[in-house]
Computed example of a mutant assay.
Amino acid sequence: MNREKLLAGGIVAVVAASLVAAAVVPGAIADSDPDPVRPGHLSIQEVAIAPGTVSGGTATLQVDTRLEHRGGKSENVTVRVRAVHLDSGLVETTSETAVEPITGDREVSVVRNLSVERSGGYRVETVVYRDGARIAEGSKEVRGVGTLTPEYARTSVRFHWQGGDGLPPIEYTVQNAANDSATLDVSTFLTNEGDDSSEELRVVFTARQADSNIVADRTAVEVGTIRPGRTATPNVELTVPDGYNYYLDAVLWKDGVIVGTTRSVANLNPTETVRANETVREVGIEVGDFEGDGSGPASGGDYETTIERGADGGAGGIPGFGVGVAVVALVGALLLARRQS
């Protein structure tokens, strides 16, 4: 028998023995481990911030951190988010959460809520830790937190006209004019822009004298509920002194909270007009015209005040030359007469 045959026979014997051992002895050949040795790779794919519950003093920021995972298994992962005020640089609040073990190639969403003061802006910082070591971080800024509307002040009802299209948000007609007073029929338009019926609402109409902001008359009217996509037209009567210009204000109330305002004008003075968004010059005004006794257009005290302006613009001034000027003129006249004599 030659050497080649002996070598081949030995190899066959070794392979046969190995197969017999694998079949008879458990665990003779180790199973391959399905989990790789290296942990998976984690990174921050996106950070989205949405408003949550809003009260009068605080706002909740809902922070959604999207983690991208690649490779094997990631354990002991922690996500920390915090809000830093943009103006002061102080940390407003911090929240931390543990993430369940992640395997495979996929994205994981980690949502945390941060309660911050309802003012200014914030930088929301996100840090990812694994086994206590920082492996990823990112940040995003959010501004105008103070403009978020609190829950108690939200309504789907709006004043239909806001003056941008040339139509006044508040209309009026003169119902009666007698005894230096005018009765105005004042109305506005409220539209429910939501998908549900509105809450119980009421509107307070106020007539303010344009030059002094004195309230000439004020009346409230219940609106009730407004169906979605419908417009209500509440109206009242206001009695004011005639011959003046007025701002007509409408304030929308919901459960004791102001949820909307608008303004228009009523020009009852034929010599000058005012607009709803302009500054008006000071003029003389008879406060007594706006004095009320409980039954008139306005309420006030038991006195009457008149502001008068002299030629020099001062209140209560005397028109013409003062006393000093008259004395100087008299002395000059006497000296001139003596010289001529």
Score class of each variant (00 low, 15 high):
Ser119Gly: 02
Tyr152Cys: 01
Leu114Met: 07
Val157Asp: 04
Asn76Ala: 14
Val127Tyr: 12
Val142Pro: 05
Val77Gln: 02
Arg106Ser: 08
Val157Ser: 02
Pro168Glu: 11
Arg70Ile: 11
Val91Leu: 10
Arg82Met: 11
Gly89Ala: 09
Arg130Val: 12
Gly163Glu: 04
Gly71Arg: 02
Ser119Cys: 00
Gly71Trp: 03
Arg80Cys: 01
Gly120Thr: 01
Val116Asn: 05
Val142Tyr: 06
Asp131Pro: 02
Asp105Tyr: 09
Glu141Gln: 12
His160Asn: 07
Glu141Leu: 08
Pro150Thr: 03
Tyr129Asp: 03
Ala136Asp: 10
Val145Ser: 00
Glu75Ala: 14
Glu68Pro: 02
Trp161Lys: 11
Gly89Met: 10
Gly104Met: 09
Val157Arg: 06
Pro101Leu: 01
Ile102Pro: 08
Thr147Leu: 12
Val128Asp: 07
Asp105Met: 07
Glu125Val: 15
Val142Gln: 04
Ala153Met: 08
Asn76Val: 03
Tyr152Ser: 13
Leu86Phe: 09
Gly164Lys: 08
Thr155Asn: 07
Val99Gly: 07
Val91Lys: 08
Val157Gly: 01
Ser109Gln: 05
Val79Trp: 12
Phe159Thr: 11
Ser88Lys: 07
Ala153Thr: 08
Gln162Ala: 12
Asn113Met: 05
Gly89Thr: 09
Arg143Leu: 10
Arg112Thr: 09
Ala83Glu: 01
Arg66Pro: 01
Ser95Asn: 12
Glu92Ser: 15
Val116Gln: 04
Val128Phe: 13
